[in-house]
Design a protein around this nucleic acid. Structure first.
Lengths: 252, 252
DNA sequence: CGTGTAATTGAAATAGCTCAACTAGGGTGG
DNA sequence: CCACCCTAGTTGAGCTATTTCAATTACACG
C-alpha cells in the first residue's frame, strides 16, 4: 500500500530512539542504550495516505518523526470521527483491540516521516527494562487522557467551546508557557470539523467569531492565541501533565 | 491452592484476584498465584458515592467486585460527561494523567463492593511477571477502545444510533451470543443522557421509538434486545474483542 | 399511603446542519 | 507570465434535530 518509500539502506538509529525516549519520562541511561539499539526502518508517507488501517493486524509500531497525522474512525462513507492528532514523537499502533487489530485508521495530514519498529522487538526490550515498560504504559495513559478529553468535548461542549478547546490542545502541545504565541496548525477547517463533530460551515463561523473577538489569528498553517489564559478559563481547559507546561514540570 | 487458581472460570466471580485475573487473558498458574497473594481491603460504597475524585492522587487501585459505577467528568455545575460504565471485574484508578492524578470521577451507580489493592504492590508483582504486565496493558487498551467508541458515538452518531449503540455495548458486556437476551441495566434515562451527550427528554423519545419498533424491552433494571444482529447492523456496531463474543474466542 | 425520583408527553425555542453561491489562494501547465 | 483549476474558506437563508420548559403520570420505598 503505502510502503513503496522504504529506504532500507538508510537506518537512522538516533532519531526514532530519541523521539520515542523523549516521550517516555524517567528512562535510565541503560534504557536509552536499549532503545538506541532498536532496529528501525525509515519511511515516507504522502499526505492523505494511510499509516494504518482499522482492523489491520499491528505488527509494527511507527514513531512519527516528521509531519502530522490523525487517528480516525469512519462510520460510513460520509461520516468520520477524528479521535486524535499525532505529532512528531507520537506512536502509531498502540491503540488496538483485544485481538491486536488497530482500533482506527491513521492518516497522514501532512507528508510524514516515520520510523517503523518491530512490535515484538520492543516487547522484548520491555521485558528487560521496567523503565521501558513504564514508558509504554505512559504512552497508553496519554492516549487515554487525550481520548477522554475528546469525548468530553464532543459530548458536552458547545461548538464555540469545542473549537477553543481544540485550539488550546494543539497550542499547548507545541508551546510550553501560558503566554501569547504562534504554533503550527496544518489543520483545515474540514479536518477540524471531523475532529469536533461539527459541520465545516459551523466551524468556520466559530473561527470567524474568535477572530472578531481578537482571540486568535489563523492562517493556513499557523495558529496564534493572544491570551491563552483567558481562553483556558472560558472553556475550563485542564492541562493533563503530558505536555511541557510549567505546572507539569513543577509537579515532578 | 495452585490448583484452585488454575481454573478461574470454575470459581465464583466475587473475589478480587479472580475478578482481576479473569480480566487479564493469558495468565500462567504462577501469575494466578501472585495475584492470589495480593493483599486487598474490601469496601462497600453507597450508590451515588465517589469511588475516586478527578485530580485525586491515585495510590490504590480498586477492583469492582459487585455493582456498577460510572467514570465521569464534570465540566460545570450542570454539565457532565459519562465516559464509561464499570462492571464487576473492571478496575478503578488506571486512567490517570501525567502526574498520576485521576482523569475523571468514578461514581457508584448502584451500591458497590470493591477490593482495594495497593498500586505499588501490583506494580511490584508486575515487575516479577510479564503476564501481569501484559494484563495491565490489556486493561489500558480496553479502556482506550471503550473511550474511542464513546467518542465516535458522541461525535458522529444521531440520537437514535447513540442509544442503540449504548444498548449493544452494555448488552454484549454481559451476554456472550448474538441471540436475543436480557441483561442487567441499572441505568436511568438521566444517566444514559449524560453518557450519550443528549437531554433526558430526547433519550426518552428514542427509547419509546425502539419500544414501538419492537426492538427492545426496558424496565428499570433490565434490558432485552430482541434482535441484536439487526440492531448491530443498523448502527454499524463493531465488537472489539474484549467481551466474550464467539468472534473474539474464535480469533484466539 | 405519602413522597420523592424516574419516565413520559406536548409545545416552543434554538443550536447546528444543509444547500448553494461566491471569494481567495496556491500551484500547474501552456 | 497568465489562465486555469482545485482546494479551502466565507457568507446567507431555510431547515431539522435536539433542547428547554412545563406539566403529568408511573413507580419504588419507607
Amino acid at each position: 500500500m503505502t510502503e513503496q518509500f522504504a529506504h532500507p539502506h538508510h537506518f537512522q538509529k538516533d532519531r526514532p530512539a530519541e523521539l520515542l525516549g523523549n516521550s517516555m519520562p524517567g528512562l535510565t541511561d541503560q534504557d536509552w542504550l536499549l532503545l538506541g539499539g532498536l532496529r528501525s526502518v525509515h519511511r515516507f508517507v504522502g499526505r492523505g495516505r494511510h499509516l494504518l488501517n482499522e482492523n489491520e493486524d499491528v505488527t509494527m509500531l511507527k514513531v512519527i518523526c516528521k509531519g502530522w497525522a490523525v487517528r480516525c474512525s469512519a462510520i460510513d462513507k460520509d461520516r468520520r470521527q477524528i479521535l486524535d492528532f499525532l505529532l512528531p514523537g507520537d506512536v502509531v499502533g498502540l491503540n488496538v483491540d483485544g485481538r491486536g487489530q488497530a482500533l482506527s485508521d491513521v492518516i497522514a495530514l501532512t507528508p510524514c516521516e516515520v520510523a517503523e519498529v518491530d512490535q515484538t522487538a520492543l516487547h522484548r526490550l520491555s521485558s528487560q527494562s521496567s523503565g521501558i515498560t513504564d514508558g509504554i504504559q505512559y504512552l497508553l495513559k496519554r492516549n487515554i487522557a487525550r481520548t477522554c478529553d475528546q469525548a468530553v468535548r464532543l459530548g458536552r461542549m458547545t461548538a464555540y467551546e469545542r473549537v477553543v478547546s481544540l485550539f488550546l490542545d494543539i497550542f499547548f502541545r507545541q508551546h510550553s508557557t501560558m503566554s501569547e504565541g504562534t504554533v503550527d496548525f496544518p489543520i483545515t477547517q474540514t479536518v477540524a470539523a471531523d475532529a469536533l463533530g461539527l459541520s465545516v460551515v459551523h466551524v468556520n463561523r466559530q473561527v470567524m467569531r474568535l477572530r472578531r473577538e481578537g482571540e486568535v489569528a489563523l492562517t493556513r498553517r499557523q495558529l496564534t492565541l493572544f491570551d491563552p489564559v483567558r481562553l483556558s478559563e472560558t472553556v475550563g481547559y485542564r492541562d493533563r501533565g503530558f505536555n511541557n507546561l510549567p505546572s507539569a514540570i513543577a509537579a515532578e
